[in-house]
Simulated assay, not measured.
Amino acid sequence: MKTFRITIIWATLTAFALINVSCEKEKPAPPRSMEQIKSEEGIPVEVSTIMPSDFSKELSFFSTVSGIVETVEYTKVKDQILSIRAKVGDYVKQGQLLMEFPTNNPSLQYEQAKVALDNSEKSYKRMKELLAAGEISQQVYDNTQAQYMVAKQNMESIEKLVKIKAPVSGTLISIPVRVGDVMGDNQALFTIAQLNKMIAKVQATDRELVQIKKGMPVQVFWNGFEYRGIVSDIGMEMNSMTRSFPIEITIDNPKQTLKSGVTVDVRIKVKETDQAIIIDRKLLVDEAGKKYVYLEKEGMATKRQVQTGIASGTNIEITDGLKPGDNLITCCTSFLEDGIKIKLNK
């Protein structure tokens, strides 16, 4: 009986031991630390092979454009518009009659001036004949001629008030009035622009100003189209309100598809470099005023000091420290150290 009890107890203890061993085998392994991963497998990274490419730095602005020549004609007399002889979009020549106002406005004395001109012209022609015949003195002729010139200039001045002509050749881009409108003083009648070239004016900070030179190439974008231009003028006086300097851009517009008054995206190319080594700024590691990147070499991370050049957006030029064919590590740089083991992600 005693032997039977001992046998049961022993069997029970053995079962508990087996269960305990089984439970211990089923327990998950504790998580590995970053140090263990570093030493056993290496830090997983991605790399990019350095290849030279063309690189440029641009300064970007927004601007409203206008024709290289743009003239607004204003009323010179208070009266009703009798006729409009052109429409928006027409190309007009300098001196072409575009609008007319009544000549019977009492304040103009149009008829009186016309009669005075006719009379003085007849007198002038008569005195010219008499002078040629030797029947009058030169002084009498000169006085008559002066009176005629005054009457002619007076008539021309009045006609300019009622017969509105194009001051320059160009395209009519605006006529904000209609026949029959009664106009007041100094109201806009029409705008003429020369649209084969356009002007954009931007405002540059003092830091931007030192990078901009006359003649620099400019790209202008509007409505899906790209236009070419140059920096044509650089202002030297700072605007006290905006703390900026005016920069003028002249844009080629041979097909006149770029319209006056639209807002465009202006990009001034301040520097261009052929076959440069370019990387993302975020890959630079700053330490004690020096800049470094990490390269992959034989499964290890290699820390390399570099010198930087011009920057544009998120990209920056590397002028020294990298060469074509280097394998640049492009992620996880915060986990890297010089000489640490790495593993390439596939």
Rank of each mutant, 00 (worst) to 15 (best):
K2Q: 13
W10S: 15
W10V: 13
A11E: 05
T12D: 02
T14K: 11
A17D: 01
E24M: 09
S33N: 12
Q36M: 07
E41Q: 10
V47K: 06
P52H: 11
S53K: 15
F61G: 02
I68P: 03
Y74G: 02
T75S: 15
Q80W: 00
I81Y: 00
I81F: 02
Y91G: 04
F101S: 09
L108W: 01
Y110T: 10
L117R: 10
D118A: 15
K125R: 14
E129I: 10
G134W: 14
S157R: 14
K163W: 12
G170P: 04
S174C: 00
D181N: 08
G184V: 04
D185A: 12
F190E: 06
I192Q: 11
I199C: 07
I199R: 15
A204E: 06
K213D: 10
P217Q: 09
V220K: 08
V220Q: 10
I230T: 15
D233H: 13
R243P: 01
F245W: 10
I247Y: 07
Q256M: 14
Q256L: 06
Q256A: 11
T257E: 12
V264K: 02
I279R: 03
V285T: 14
A288M: 04
Y294W: 06
E298R: 03
G299M: 03
T302S: 14
T308P: 02
G309C: 10
A311Q: 15
G313W: 07
G313F: 07
T314L: 08
G325A: 02
T333R: 08
L336M: 06
D338H: 13
I342D: 01
N345D: 05
